[in-house]
Design a protein around this nucleic acid. Structure first.
Length: 678
RNA sequence: GGGCGCGUAGCUCAAACGGAUAGAGCACGGGAUUUCUAAUCCCGGGGUUGCAGGUUCGAGUCCUGCCGCGCCUACCA
């Protein structure tokens, strides 16, 4: 409940730049409609000119030439001279070969920015569900999982910044072969009793233990095909929830899950609800979904071919043959386009379970989980888990209007199949509001793999990256990477601030490490495979999190050294300097440079919007870096505390305060906090 | 074979919806007044955006073909 109050507060953030852009587009559209009532107008696209001197918005008019039967330059000129006043717009210029460049009234916008005043934003309604992390609870998290969780968590923060209400879910596949394999490891290889395993789960990094054991089991299977029998038996035993094996599996998966929550907790990543596959099975979600799927004719029963006796669905993306609409749902699906949903032995595959789960997400299943408390974060935030018999009082999850699933690109086909199933069940709205937030994997550079002690084939050495494999125990564990980052940040902090207490230095090092890691995972666009290398990941210079953190630290230190009360100054930013004064500084020497910085600082909401509509958080990391970069240049060129002109000093301080405020906001959305000193 | 994605500077990556001179970081070379701490800043070289066509006022971006690479394509989850 307390979390919801923060959403409301945050959706009041400034939206000036975005607001102006919309107003401009509307004004131009209205003007052109009035002037050329007969013409059908193309969409007005607003861009940004390559240089600040040219203006703040650019409107290319080439697409209007044909429908308006006029040269782009002439259209631009007529808009410029005839459109009249638009609040916040100072001037327009025509630029060849056909742009209308628009300048914002700098003093007007700066005054609004300084006082953090903003027009009311429209408040979208409807709850959003973001699912991310979803690590099999049988081994330690690795760097690939970090990318998933950081992308997902950042997206959650973006949505909340934009005023949306969000539930965060982490789906736990606790009944699959992966968990069974570790159970096999404990029971067959190590011959441990339940009590002994229980004792092990209380050891510090139980997930590391499982990581190694899982790799050993995989090897054991390879040694002798007969050993696979142990897996089959174990899987079967787990199905009976009251069995000893099921109890062991639950013990292991719960302990590993707890470890995953701790690992992600180190990065300030939290979840609201952990739906588990075991409850999807035991609460018979599939039965309900199966009935609906059969009724709607989404599934077909195969009576011939290799899938005889199976219920199948058309594999997504294999497109139906055209011109056969009237044959209705009886259309044959060629064998290779069939996706088996229910096997001939009557058991359901994971896509089927996923369909049921997603019907629940949208509140379309007619069943619900039981809920029980599972994990309490240091800030008292409660994380719930699914249960067959839950607690009487619990929050409500599911039944949302929009979902985002952060799942790597390898699952694209399965995700599309689930979406198709929803659509064919007649839930078009749901299908349209189902977004597979797809991203590429994190792989290792050959050099990194060699550093980790793996021997590579000649073929592998030629590759630009090598896929990690949990099954082989090949990869970089998340906690190891975080530890290394903290150690190397600590070394730097120790040498820079020997006068500080050790725990203080440790805190600072941790913030820097997390900043570096989160930024590192965000600066790549989703589609790009990250070829992981310790050298790049451990870097604290250049385009990194610490670079952006450092800019804020510098801003803070100006206030500290200058003995200016930071809170007081920032709180009354709006009054400390008049609009007339602002106008002077933006028009005099360095005016463009100052304005560029103010403008960049004013774009936070604009960038957040872009990140949401493109489901691409990388833009935000990029923007944080660019703003920090502009600030650092400004910092070097304009000594502030020694500035003799008091008015100018106030202006420079206001600039610092504004950039600081926005940079902190942006970093908060990326999940990066700023240490007191660096 | 089919589906999805990728190919941009020596390396790692940007450039949403086609737009103005394709940008950063790293690496390399040179420099920064005793300062609001240099985890910083400035300058420099570096590019036929895989290849060939097409669409148009305009293509790294869209279309077609080719070349190279990756992932998916199980009655595993």
């Amino acid at each position: 409940m307390s979390a919801k109050i923060t959403f409301l507060k945050q959706c009041l953030e400034e939206v000036l730049y975005r607001h102006l852009e919309q107003k401009l587009a509307q004004a131009i559209a209205a003007f052109l409609r009035k002037r050329y009532p007969a013409a059908t107008l193309p969409k007005i696209v607003i861009e940004q000119p390559p240089k600040v001197e040219l203006g703040d918005f650019a409107v290319p008019l080439f697409p209007f030439a044909k429908p308006l039967r006029s040269a782009p330059l002439k259209i631009a000129e007529s808009i410029r001279t005839e459109i009249g006043n638009i609040e916040g717009i100072a001037e327009m210029n025509v630029a060849s070969p056909g742009y209308l460049n628009v300048k914002i009234d700098r003093a007007w916008m700066a005054a609004a920015l300084a006082s953090d005043r903003k027009p009311a934003a429209e408040r979208p309604s409807g709850k959003i569900l973001v699912e991310h992390t979803s690590i099999n609870p049988n081994k330690a998290a690795h760097i690939g999982h970090l990318r998933n969780a950081i992308l997902g968590d950042t997206f959650v923060r973006l949505l909340r910044y934009a005023g949306r209400e969000v539930d965060v879910q982490n789906y736990i596949d606790n009944t699959g072969v992966q968990v069974a394999d570790v159970v096999v490891g404990f029971t067959y290889l190590e011959k441990k009793t339940r009590a002994e395993i229980e004792a092990l789960t209380r050891r510090p990094r139980f997930d590391y233990y499982c990581w190694d054991l899982y790799a050993r089991v995989s090897q054991w299977y390879e040694q002798d095909g007969q050993n696979q029998q142990a897996r089959a038996e174990t899987l079967h035993a787990i199905e009976d929830a009251s069995s000893e094996t099921a109890a062991i599996a639950d013990l292991i998966s719960s302990a590993v899950l707890r470890r995953h929550l701790e690992t992600m907790g180190r990065l300030d990543i939290e979840y609201d609800f952990l739906p588990r596959e075991s409850e999807i099975l035991h609460l018979h979600f599939w039965d309900a979904a199966f009935a609906k799927l059969k009724d709607a004719g989404v599934l077909t029963y195969e009576t011939e071919g290799k899938n005889t006796g199976c219920w199948v669905m058309r594999r997504a993306g294999t497109g139906k043959v055209e011109n056969t609409e009237d044959t209705g749902d009886a259309q044959e699906i060629s064998e290779e386009d069939q996706k088996v949903i229910v096997r001939s032995n009557g058991t359901v595959g994971y896509v089927g379970k996923d369909i049921a789960y997603h019907l629940w997400k949208f509140g379309l299943l007619g069943r619900d989980f039981g809920y029980r408390k599972f994990y309490r974060y240091p800030n008292n935030h409660e994380c719930w888990i699914s249960a067959v018999r839950g607690e009487l009082h619990h929050p409500h999850f599911g039944g949302v209007s929009e979902i985002y699933n952060v799942i790597d690109a390898r699952q694209s086909e399965a995700q599309s199949t689930v979406i198709e199933a929803l659509r064919e069940l007649g839930h078009k709205e749901a299908a349209d509001h189902y977004t597979h937030f797809s991203y590429e994997m994190v792989a290792l550079t050959p050099r990194c793999a060699a550093e980790l002690g793996y021997t590579l084939s000649e073929e592998d050495k030629m590759r630009s990256y090598i896929e990690v494999s949990g099954r082989k125990g090949f990869g970089v564990k998340a906690d190891d990477l975080i530890d290394q980052l903290v150690i190397s940040a600590k070394r730097e902090v120790d040498s820079r601030h020997p006068q500080l207490a050790d725990d203080e230095r440790q805190d600072i090092a941790t913030q820097i490490a997390i900043g570096a890691l989160r930024f590192f995972m965000l600066k790549f666009t989703k589609q790009s495979v990250i070829a992981f290398d310790f050298k790049d990941a451990l870097s604290f210079e250049g385009e990194t999190g610490p670079y952006a953190q450092y800019a804020v630290v510098r801003a803070n230190s100006i206030f500290k050294k200058g003995e200016v009360d930071l809170d007081g100054f920032c709180g009354s930013l709006g009054q400390s300097i008049s609009a007339d004064e602002l106008a002077k500084f933006f028009s005099r020497e360095n005016g463009d440079e100052f304005w560029e910085l103010w403008l960049a600082a004013g774009k936070t909401s604009y960038i957040v919007d872009q990140c949401i509509s493109t489901t691409e958080p990388a833009h935000l990391a990029k923007h944080a870096f660019e703003l920090a970069q502009l600030f650092n240049t400004f910092y070097h060129r304009h000594p502030i505390l020694t500035e003799p002109d008091e008015k100018k000093k106030q202006f420079l301080l206001a600039t610092v305060a504004l950039v600081r405020r926005e940079l902190i906001r942006i970093l908060e959305v990326t999940g990066v906090t700023v240490p007191p000193v660096m």
